[in-house]
Computed example of a mutant assay.
Amino acid sequence: MAMPLSIILVLMAYGFFTKNNSRKRLAVGLAFVALYLSSNTCLVIKALNWWEPKVTLMQQMTGTYDVGVLLSGGLIAGSKPYSDLVSLGNNGDRVLQTFRLYKAGKIKKILITGMSLPYQMRLRKGETREAAGLLVQWGVPASDIMFEEKARNTRENAKYSAAILKQKFPSGKYILITSAFHMRRAKGCFQKAGIRADIFPADYHGGYNNINFNNLVIPDANAFADFSVLWHELIGYVVYKFAGYI
C-alpha cells in the first residue's frame, strides 16, 4: 500500500541515490513538503473533519433499531500473556458506543461482524468474541448478541451481515456502528448489499482545536499517524469505488 511514510522514504531514497542535481532537489523538496503537510495538526484535523460524518447525538435519535451492526477490526488489542486482562484496541470506541446504544434502548440486538485469526477462532478468542464478552460483563444479555465471523474485509462485512439480517430481520430497522473515518466506505458497502441502515459513527479522529502556533507550524507525530489512517481509508474508498463494491 502506498502509505505516506513509504512515499516519503522512496522520495528521500531517490534523492539520495540520483546523480541528477535538479531531480535530487525536487525529490528531497517533495519529501519535505509531504512530511510537513501530513504532520501538520491544523491541516490534518481539517481534512478529517471534512471526511468524517457529523456526530450523531443519541438524545436526538427517535425510535428503536432492531439490530445494531458492529464492525470489527481493532476492537480488541488482545489478551495479555498469562493474564485475563483484555484491552480495547485502536478502534475500541466502537464497542463502547454499541454498549451505550443498547443500554439507552436504542438497539434491541447486536450483530458483531468480522473474522479473526484462525487459531483465535478455534479457541473462541477472536475479537468478535472478546468484544461480546466485554458487552456481557457490562450487562448485555448474551442472547442479544449475534455473530458473523466469515468476513475478511468491509465488503464481506456487508455481504455476510446482509444475509443474516435479511433472513432473521427481513423488515427490520438497522444502524451501522463503525469508526467515523471508515463510515463512508462501510455504509456504501451495506447499501450495495441491499441494506439501508442509519449510521452511528464512533472513534472520531478529527476535532475542533483552536489554531495556535504549535498546531499550525510545529510537526506532530500524532497528526502524521491520523493522516496515515485517513490516507489508507481514502485509498480503500477509491479502490472499492472502482471495483463496484460501493
Rank of each mutant, 00 (worst) to 15 (best):
M1K: 13
I8R: 03
I8L: 07
V10Q: 03
V10W: 13
L11E: 00
Y14R: 00
F17Q: 00
K19H: 06
K19L: 11
S22E: 04
S22I: 13
R23K: 14
K24P: 00
A27M: 04
A27N: 00
A27W: 10
G29Y: 09
L30H: 01
L30I: 11
V33M: 05
V33P: 03
N40V: 14
I45S: 05
K46I: 12
K46A: 14
N49E: 11
W50M: 13
W50C: 06
W51V: 10
E52T: 00
E52W: 04
E52H: 02
K54T: 14
L57N: 07
T64N: 13
D66H: 12
D66W: 14
G73T: 01
I76A: 05
I76T: 07
A77Y: 05
K80S: 09
K80D: 09
L85Y: 14
V86E: 12
V86C: 05
G92L: 00
R94P: 01
V95W: 06
T98L: 08
R100L: 15
Y102I: 06
K103Q: 13
K106T: 07
K106V: 09
K108H: 08
K108V: 04
I112N: 03
T113Q: 02
T113D: 04
M121P: 01
R122L: 15
R122C: 03
L123Y: 10
K125G: 11
K125F: 13
T128P: 03
R129N: 10
R129H: 15
E130M: 15
E130N: 12
A131D: 02
G133Y: 09
G139C: 04
P141Q: 12
S143H: 11
D144Q: 13
M146F: 15
M146A: 07
K150A: 11
A151C: 06
A151K: 10
N153K: 08
T154R: 09
R155L: 06
R155C: 06
S161Y: 02
A163Y: 03
Q167I: 00
F169V: 05
P170M: 09
S171M: 10
S171L: 08
Y174R: 05
I177T: 13
I177R: 05
I177S: 06
T178P: 00
S179L: 13
S179V: 12
A180F: 10
A180N: 03
A180P: 04
M183G: 00
A186F: 03
K187V: 10
K187P: 01
K187F: 02
K187Q: 14
G188K: 14
F190Y: 11
Q191V: 13
K192G: 01
A193R: 10
G194I: 11
A202P: 01
Y204I: 08
G206A: 09
G206F: 12
G207E: 13
Y208R: 04
N209S: 14
N214S: 12
N215I: 08
I218Y: 14
D226T: 08
F227I: 05
L230F: 05
L230V: 14
W231G: 02
G236L: 08
G236I: 04
V238E: 01
Y240I: 00
F242E: 00
G244M: 10
I246A: 03
